[in-house]
Design a protein around this nucleic acid. Structure first.
Lengths: 244, 244
DNA sequence: GCTTGACCTTGCCCTAAGGGCAGGGTTGCA
DNA sequence: TGCAACCCTGCCCTTAGGGCAAGGTCAAGC
């Protein structure tokens, strides 16, 4: 016949927690003594410990109440489900911890000097400020999210710009921003891009595509947003590539 | 210049989450386009991922906002703290999982038949219903919380009852419930209990005491609650034992 | 008997981190 | 021109308790 304070201390919870469990019908209200104090039995202590074990495992209180009334079979099944979820949560936390350490190690710290230098040289090659800004965003995202493959990808791109024909193609892409969406130069450019892509990578995977991420879509969305001509260009290229 | 929906999908959060981060000053509000839509840059995506990493590690949003303005030194230190907390949380979850499996294995399922039988025989030996109820609570708690040492402890107690003198002592304890707290029989009983305890266990640890738990206090609290005589008896015994 | 500190009671409002909905405007594609 | 899919703000709702007020109770010491 212990008081609420003792029960709380024993179970390692606050008094309020116990009262909440009463309110929500998780733990039966015990009898009161002559002065209205709640008086608990060992059975209450047992029940409370069970409830806490489930609650600490992340089971919502409403669910715990349901489980109290569930069949033995259903209860066991539910426990198994909870166990599985818990394993997943632990794995998730470990993954978070890994990312956290990456953050602490100063990774995700903008761009390597090599890349910054490359971006600074773009205007001299004739690219517009808008194009440079887009490229900057692109590389920030790629380096932030796929640091392992980013360097490789970057070298591939930087090398492409050393070929005068390819460089002209990118310059034309840049210029296309302000064209009418139905300007024939758009169709011409789309064909050149497709031909160059196939020549450079054959029908093998495009670099960066294997990392099944949202980044390409994100970038392309950013690109498309600012110009109808670019939207059409993207649609044409996408369409022709998908036919090969 | 991506929209809020794309950013959300990319970062794996809901749109609402992003808006909340704006409201709380965690993520700067981006510029709006001509129709009032928020337009994000890669920098926002980077910031958001950092924020999510911390949030998933359990850092409160208010704390994350402070950290945004913290020095590089303070930031690194805070990250270390978060990492430590995270490790503790993971360990806690694993412990919870262990207890959960104990629960699933059907342990914590009341009492072994041996104990139940013992309790049923107590009335025949002359013990009051109140005493039996207390003993029942006691053993439920002990078996629930220390299943490994409970059996040993129980055998020790059951064996004690086979000694007529000791049995009489327990019967007297039971009877003492309704005595006046200053009845000399209380003093006498206390001395007998102390002597018997020392004879049986010497000055070695009493069984069950090494499991440094709240159980003994819980039980004793329950016992004391119902009778001033028992309270005084407990005080006397405790006092005399502590003097040895 | 009186005080004092530690408990207990109910009732009320507060919090974090969003979820969901209403009511209304915008965009992209056929 | 219609339609689906977006976006905007504002408002209320949720979970699992925390905290406080105002008042009753208990055990100990004087």
């Amino acid at each position: 016949m212990i008081t609420i304070g003792r029960l709380a201390k024993y179970a390692g919870v606050s008094i309020k927690t116990i009262r909440v469990y009463h309110d929500k019908g998780l733990l039966p209200e015990p009898d009161r003594d002559s002065s209205g104090y709640r008086r608990y039995t060992a059975q209450h202590a047992i029940d409370l410990i069970k409830i806490r074990t489930l609650a600490e495992a992340g089971v919502p209180l409403a669910r715990i109440r349901e489980l109290r009334a569930a069949s033995d079979e259903g209860f066991r099944e539910a426990l198994h489900q909870v166990d599985t979820d818990l394993t997943a949560r632990i794995r998730g936390l470990r993954e978070t911890q890994r990312r956290l350490r990456g953050l602490a190690a100063g990774r995700l710290q903008m761009l390597p000097p090599e890349v910054a230098g490359h971006l600074e040289r773009l205007p001299e090659l004739g690219f517009s400020p808008r194009w440079v800004a887009l490229e900057t965003d692109l590389w920030i995202l790629v380096f932030a999210t796929h640091p392992d493959t980013a360097v490789e990808l970057f070298h591939d791109q930087a090398q492409a710009l050393t070929d005068p024909a390819l460089r002209q193609m990118y310059l034309d892409y840049d210029r296309a921003h302000d064209l009418d969406p139905h300007d024939p130069r758009i169709d011409d450019l789309a064909r050149r891009v497709v031909r160059a892509t196939l020549e450079r990578y054959g029908s093998a995977d495009l670099p960066g595509q294997n990392t099944n991420s949202e980044i390409p879509a994100l970038i392309q969305g950013a690109v498309n947003a600012s110009s109808p001509a670019w939207r059409r260009l993207d649609a044409l290229i996408r369409d022709q590539l998908s036919r090969t």
